[in-house]
Write a protein that binds this DNA or RNA. Structure first.
Lengths: 147, 147
DNA sequence: CTCTAGAATGTTATAATATAACAATTAAAA
DNA sequence: TTTTAATTGTTATATTATAACATTCTAGAG
């Protein structure tokens, strides 16, 4: 996401947070910006690096707290298989993500496959299971890396 | 899995490994047994505890190596969202697992949903993505924990 | 059977990820 | 303005995982 897109995104996110009574503080906004600008998922410690100022680096709890907040607001997703975080492009309606993760170039693509959603619903029904947090991370090689 | 089932399972697994030229050493067998007997997924360090003998505890690389071997042989699955391992009940034909994980009681249920598999195939085709390792972990509440 | 190469294990150290606990500060609400 | 709750700062430490190198074991060649 380039600077222009980011500005636009942040504007939308601020409105969203305001409507939820959630406070997007400067620190949280900084973490979100770092994530949205990155082409690749970022780990907590990579974000800490990114937050470093001339004189001081924040401590781990700082970034983990920001990440917790951003996840709660549905502004980012955590990729369990990578211990890393990616931005959510559709924060306006909460959803669990489905991710295609290229093990070659590292790019991550959030997809919204309806059929897959329905399969999950079916599993829920069959098993009497109440799904709260689906983790769908599809690791493999993306189209361009196969050439 | 009870003692009798475990014995039966180990017998099958030994045959399987033999046919692959893979060596199921006593240590690897011990780790597999601990995992198969457990009702809950076990972390690497829980397994280390389980491997402790009167006088000495093995070091972390010991258990991580055994876990690596067992995963390669398709005898166990790693749950990324829990940093823990569960046994595979159908090691005879290799497969990626789909897991229902109860966040209440901690039980894990490996399911084999065909529809879900097909959805994954569809995603692959649509996106030109070559799926190598799907991570499907469905966290929620199991039927009995909802009562 | 012996030798040897490769596999497996042992050992030490440390990297990478994540959270607990409590203090200080800031913002919102009464 | 006060006071309450949320946020941030700080220190320490827990948890998960791997690197690097030494030693031992095992299967197969000769």
């Amino acid at each position: 996401m380039n600077q222009k897109e980011l500005t636009q995104h942040l504007k939308q996110v601020k409105t969203l947070c305001a409507s939820q009574g959630a406070r997007l503080t400067p620190q949280r906004e900084q973490v979100l910006s770092l994530i949205m600008r990155s082409k690749k998922p970022l780990t907590a410690y990579e974000l800490l690096e990114g937050m470093r100022q001339e004189d001081k680096t924040p401590a781990p709890p700082t970034v983990y707290r920001a990440l917790e907040f951003l996840q709660e607001q549905g502004l980012i997703h955590k990729l369990e298989s990578l211990h890393a975080f990616v931005g959510c492009n559709h924060p306006e309606h909460p959803h669990a993500g489905q991710f295609l993760i290229c093990t070659d170039c590292g790019e991550v693509n959030e997809v919204c496959n309806h059929e897959l959603d329905e399969s999950l619903n079916a599993v829920e029904k069959n098993q009497g299971f109440r799904l709260q947090r689906p983790v769908i991370e599809l690791l493999g090689r993306c189209a361009s890396c196969q050439k």
